[in-house]
Lab assay of single mutants.
Amino acid sequence: MLDDRARMEAAKKEKVEQILAEFQLQEEDLKKVMRRMQKEMDRGLRLETHEEASVKMLPTYVRSTPEGSEVGDFLSLDLGGTNFRVMLVKVGEGEEGQWSVKTKHQMYSIPEDAMTGTAEMLFDYISECISDFLDKHQMKHKKLPLGFTFSFPVRHEDIDKGILLNWTKGFKASGAEGNNVVGLLRDAIKRRGDFEMDVVAMVNDTVATMISCYYEDHQCEVGMIVGTGCNACYMEEMQNVELVEGDEGRMCVNTEWGAFGDSGELDEFLLEYDRLVDESSANPGQQLYEKLIGGKYMGELVRLVLLRLVDENLLFHGEASEQLRTRGAFETRFVSQVESDTGDRKQIYNILSTLGLRPSTTDCDIVRRACESVSTRAAHMCSAGLAGVINRMRESRSEDVMRITVGVDGSVYKLHPSFKERFHASVRRLTPSCEITFIESEEGSGRGAALVSAVACKKACMLGQ
Rank of each mutant, 00 (worst) to 15 (best):
S151Y: 04
Q24E: 01
G388P: 06
A329M: 09
V33E: 01
T206L: 02
G446M: 14
R394K: 14
N231G: 03
Q24Y: 13
G68Y: 10
V401L: 10
K172N: 13
E440V: 13
C213I: 10
E157H: 13
E40F: 02
A460C: 15
N166R: 03
G385E: 02
V181G: 00
G446F: 00
E236C: 05
Q138G: 07
E28M: 14
R250W: 09
C461I: 09
A201W: 03
M115A: 04
L134D: 03
R325K: 13
L146T: 05
Y289K: 00
R191G: 00
R5N: 12
S398L: 11
E96M: 14
L266E: 13
K136V: 07
E48I: 14
H141C: 04
A201E: 04
R275E: 07
T206F: 04
T65P: 15
K296Y: 03
H50V: 03
R397F: 09
P432M: 08
L77E: 06
V455N: 15
E236I: 05
T116K: 07
E14V: 11
L451Q: 01
R345W: 15
V401C: 10
M8A: 07
R325D: 11
G444V: 10
A456K: 12
V86N: 02
Y289A: 02
K31C: 10
G229F: 08
I390R: 00
L144N: 08
G92D: 09
H416N: 08
V200N: 01
D344Y: 05
F171S: 02
N313Q: 11
A384E: 02
M381R: 03
L276K: 06
S340W: 11
S353N: 13
D365H: 13
Y61C: 01
A425I: 14
D344M: 08
L45I: 01
F334T: 04
M197A: 15
V222T: 05
I19N: 15
E399C: 12
Y215T: 15
F438P: 02
E128I: 07
Q219T: 10
L144P: 08
L288V: 13
Q323T: 12
A460T: 15
M381P: 03
K190W: 05
K172Y: 03
M34E: 13
T209I: 06
I110N: 05
Q106N: 11
Q106W: 09
V335Q: 08
P284G: 08
I436C: 13
A370N: 00
M402T: 12
K172L: 03
L243Y: 00
V16Y: 12
G94P: 15
G388M: 04
V305C: 09
Q38A: 12
Y215H: 15
E96T: 12
Q106R: 07
S54G: 08
F316C: 11
M298V: 06
R358W: 06
S340M: 13
S69H: 13
M402G: 13
P359H: 04
L25H: 09
G227L: 02
N231C: 02
R308C: 11
S396P: 12
K140H: 01
E395F: 11
M115I: 13
A11C: 14
P66T: 12
N313D: 09
S69R: 15
R7F: 09
M197G: 06
M298G: 11
G81A: 03
R392Q: 07
K136F: 08
G299A: 07
H105I: 02
T228L: 00
A384C: 13
V406I: 12
F260K: 09
V277S: 07
K13P: 12
F150Q: 05
S321W: 08
V302L: 08
P417Y: 13
S360N: 10
S336A: 06
S64T: 15
N83E: 01
S360F: 11
Y108H: 01
D247G: 10
L77M: 01
M8C: 09
F330I: 13
G294T: 03
H218A: 15
T168E: 00
G285P: 04
V302C: 13
D278E: 06
R186I: 01
V305K: 07
H137S: 11
L20K: 04
L304Q: 07
N254C: 04
P66W: 13
K291Q: 02
L47E: 06
S340P: 04
R275T: 15
Q38W: 12
P145T: 14
G117M: 04
